[in-house]
């Protein structure tokens, strides 16, 4: 078998194992959260019988491992469960028209993926291009300005960057909407315009890492004998960077890109709040506030899955950039 396939299969299996372990960690951690859903919903005056009844209906009285395996079994079948917040505990439980966790998460997740996708489409080429130019003109004024400005933007709080962009692109020059008004069935172009400001804010947040890693990975290679050989062949400076250094520098760059993309999927609550963007981050925060355990667990699992999947993709792509593996002897 081609060694690349073997490595990819190994990584895939490892990724699944990691996800399994993470699922256990999530379940344990959520169980350790202080507070109790039944207590929270019924209030201070609830009778112990009422609380016990709800706990029984939700299966909360079962032993820890029993609950874990039931949950895991449901997850494996694609059943994320029913949100507690949707249940009406005063009347009958388990009525026919219940909204499942999957129904709740799906549109939010799609929005998050759209935002992450738009951001990545802007930020990755921008950051890599900037890194290449910074490496080409290393130690010049351009290099220093690029470094300082990206570092400034990554060091500033996200909401601050967001409001600055709102000030310049929505208030002073009304080019883009300051509120991301996204509704069901919105046309693609409207959706894109509504997403642009949050995406630009996030671009400012993630560019610095990727740009600096691109620059460092390329400069690291410039002392290699094959770069010297290219210079001594009379190859033009830009081509030396793009054709001789970059193809060998992808592995670290890809890994930093993957980490930043994972951040875009899991960590953008602040930006969602500022622009009132209906992403998964806000849903997650609300669910934690309400002790809506099935939603919290499902969100956590999705976040973990995103991290594992992106890192796996980064690993595989890094492997594929190695000509020794792509073209075995």
């Amino acid at each position: 078998m081609n060694p690349v396939f073997k490595i990819i299969l190994q990584r895939l299996a490892l990724g699944l194992l990691t996800l399994l372990i993470v699922s256990f960690v999530i379940f344990t951690a959520v169980n350790l959260l202080p507070g109790d859903f039944a207590q929270a919903i019924l209030g201070q005056s609830a009778t112990p019988e009422a609380i016990a009844s709800i706990r029984r209906d939700l299966g909360l009285d079962q032993p820890f491992f029993a609950r874990y395996f039931v949950w895991l079994g449901d997850m494996l079948q694609g059943d994320l469960g029913v949100s507690y917040a949707q249940l009406n505990f005063q009347t009958n439980m388990g009525a026919a028209e219940l909204k499942t966790v999957a129904d709740q998460i799906a549109p939010r997740f799609a929005n998050t993926m759209f935002l992450a996708g738009v951001t990545a489409a802007i930020a990755v080429p921008f950051a890599v291009g900037l890194g290449v130019l910074a490496a080409l003109y290393r130690n010049s004024v351009f290099d220093k300005v690029a470094n300082i400005s990206t570092l400034t933007s990554i060091s500033s709080p996200e909401f601050f960057l967001a409001y600055i962009l709102v000030l310049f692109l929505a208030v002073l020059n009304p080019l883009l909407p300051s509120i991301a008004n996204i509704y069901q069935g919105i046309p693609f172009t409207d959706r894109l315009i509504a997403t642009l400001l949050p995406a630009l804010t996030l671009t400012l947040v993630v560019t610095a890492h990727m740009m600096r890693m691109t620059r460092a990975a390329i400069i690291n290679l410039l002392a290699s004998p094959y770069i010297e050989m290219a210079r001594l062949k009379g190859v033009k400076p830009l081509r030396i960077i793009t054709h001789h250094a970059l193809p060998n520098a992808w592995a670290p760059i890809i890994n930093v890109i993957a980490l930043n993309l994972a951040y875009l999927i899991t960590g953008v609550v602040v930006v969602e709040v500022v622009f009132n963007y209906p992403g998964i981050g806000q849903l997650f925060v609300d669910a934690v506030k309400n002790r809506d355990i099935p939603v919290v667990q499902a969100c956590c699992l999705i976040f973990a899955g995103a991290y594992i999947l992106l890192n796996l993709a980064a690993d595989i792509l890094s492997i594929l950039t190695n000509p020794r593996l792509r073209h075995p002897k």
Binding site: H243, P247, N248, P323
Partner: peptide
């Protein structure tokens, strides 16, 4: 740059390190 490679060329000590592994 216009002379290098065209009228003056270089052969390095370690060919394994002086060929770009990616091409």
């Amino acid at each position: 740059r216009q002379l290098l490679g065209k009228r003056i060329a270089y052969v390095a000590q370690s060919a394994a390190a002086s060929f770009n592994p990616a091409h």
